[in-house]
Write a protein that binds this DNA or RNA. Structure first.
Length: 481
RNA sequence: GUCCCCAUCGACUAGCGGCCCAGGUCACGGCCCUUUCAAGGCCGAAACGGGGGUUCGAAUCCCCCUGGGGACGCCA
């Protein structure tokens, strides 16, 4: 039988990087084995589910390129299926009705916790007499369904990543599979789905390892064979705790909005907890070819944004400039550099030039788009310290002289500009380094940037001449000297 | 409290008994290149948590401790 795997998020929040990595591992495994990648929403918790989160999760997966072959399925639409399967267990005597109320159970749990005991259902309703049951019914109690589990023995989980893990049945109890309102509980719905969907490999986060013996018990009750289990380690924040909002960016969308490329996030996430020798950079194709569950490192990994940025810059430096240029447009708007119409109107060749010029200095698309402000518009913000330090009266004279020298350069290209500038400087008895920074500050307002002449070419003759001529005015403006 | 998982530089990891006085990558420091900032090149600092075993030999196998994480719901 072919490989069938699933990614099963619950729509209670945005897709975060931990979930994305679980999805990625499933997807890679499916692609590698020509299998089927199924998407399923585990949305049986009516209180916490939010329908409006479904589309963003789908969009996050699409953005990452993790397209599903089947689904999305919704557990909320399969309720009758779970009920049927639960009734089957009831009629076979493998499950029983429990009339205990949530309040009664909560009381017992608190008592157990207070006594430093493991909370465990006491089997109160396991063998109710007809009259006892009749009394509960007449009290108006609605029963939940519990699985009747063996009283002793061990359950063995064979995990591809962790090896053999044993659980003592004394640690488990007769857990609820169907709530009193007819909705299935997590563990039950998962197994019914995994069985009916023909899932062959369950690849999910580590935190579910403890659920696995319960689920195995359900497989046993159904008389179904087990899938292969693989529990992937968690992704932790810098402080080694579970990744959460207070740790800054955790959602896939946040990284997209920060200008991280999907291929970079995929590459980084794949290398988090998995490796293939010393290789750091992988194309998706290489990932598919080399991925294997047994090579997944068993320990939790810390999410390191700096390394993500390094990977991102790698893709910035190696991807097609025209393609990257197009990705810049929305950022031009978001960064208030220009209006949407203006951003749309920028020739794609100009954007590609910016990419080529700045990709080695930018970690993200935001950093790549930022220089467009002084490159493509008249908005130049002058850093006071830069003006103070480099636009001295002497330098301003040099720069203004350069303006006149460059006014006639034809064509207005980096190489011609450099030739003309060097000629001008030679005539003035100066070296390039005597004026370069003053010139850069006059043109861009800052001290750091791309090559001076390439920058001039991109800014264009008119603006270059104007900014060089205005150099002294800038100093006056800021320091009132 | 009980159960489960994990443990190599600050981080991601290589290592699956001798090739390791531990290799690569990010970050960090220095030098070179240079009109700035980067990028790039070269160099450097930096780890097998502790204790017992097993073995001729242990980062690698076993046990204990410690530390970190997770689970124990009519949440998922």
């Amino acid at each position: 039988m072919g490989v069938r795997v699933r990614f099963a998020p619950s729509p209670t929040g945005e897709l975060h990087v931990g979930g994305a990595r679980t999805a990625l591992f499933n997807w890679l495994f499916a692609r590698k084995h020509q299998g089927v990648f199924i998407l399923r929403f585990e949305d049986t918790d009516i209180e916490r589910n939010r329908l409006e989160l479904i589309e963003p999760i789908l969009e996050s997966l699409r953005w990452l390129g993790l397209l599903w072959d089947e689904g999305p399925y919704f557990q909320s639409q399969r309720l009758s299926l779970y009920q049927e399967w639960a009734k089957r267990l009831l009629s076979e005597g493998k499950a029983y009705k429990c009339y205990c109320t949530p309040e009664e159970l909560e009381k017992k749990r608190q008592a157990a916790l207070a006594a430093k005991q493991k909370p465990r259902y006491d089997g109160h309703c396991r063998a109710l007499t007809p009259s006892q049951e009749q009394r509960f019914i007449s009290e108006g109690r609605k029963p939940a369904l519990r699985l009747k589990i063996p009283q002793s023995g061990t359950i063995v989980v064979e995990d591809v990543i962790r090896g053999r893990v044993e659980f003592d049945l004394a640690e488990l109890d007769d857990f609820i599979i169907l709530r009193s309102d007819g909705r299935p509980t997590y563990n039950f719905a998962v197994v019914v789905d995994d069985v009916t969907m023909g899932i062959t490999h369950v690849i999910r986060a580590d935190e579910h390892l403890n659920n696995t013996p319960k689920q195995i018990l359900i497989y046993h009750a159904f008389g179904e064979g087990l899938p292969v289990f693989a529990h992937v380690p968690m992704v932790l924040a810098k402080d080694r705790s579970k990744l959460s909002k207070r740790h800054g960016a955790t959602a896939v969308f946040e990284f997209r909005d920060r200008g991280i490329l999907p291929e970079a996030l995929v590459n980084y996430l794949a290398r988090l907890g998995w490796s293939h020798g010393d290789q750091e950079i992988f194309t998706v194709q290489e990932l598919i070819e080399n991925f294997s569950l047994s090579a997944v490192h068993p320990s939790a990994a810390i999410f390191d944004e700096e390394k993500l940025c390094w990977v991102n810059q790698h893709y910035l430096k190696t991807s097609d400039p025209h393609g990257l240029g197009e990705l810049l447009r929305p950022f031009l708007v978001k960064l208030n550099i220009m209006s949407e119409a203006e951003a749309h109107a920028v020739p794609s060749g100009r954007l590609a030039q910016i990419v080529v010029l700045f990709r080695e200095r930018a970690k993200t698309l935001i950093e790549l788009a930022e220089p467009a402000r002084y490159l493509l518009t008249d908005t130049v913000s002058y850093e006071p310290e830069a003006v103070q330090k480099f636009l001295t009266p002497e330098k301003i004279e040099l720069v203004r002289g350069l303006a006149e020298a460059l006014a006639v350069v034809e064509p207005f290209t980096a190489s011609e500009l450099e030739r003309a500038t060097r000629a001008y400087l030679e005539q003035q008895g100066k070296a390039l380094k005597d004026m370069a920074q003053a010139c850069r500050v006059a043109l861009t307002g800052r001290t750091a940037g791309a090559g001076l002449f390439e920058t001039m070419e991109l800014i264009g003759r008119e603006r270059v001449i104007a900014r060089l001529r205005q150099a002294s005015a800038k100093r006056l403006e800021q320091f009132h000297v």
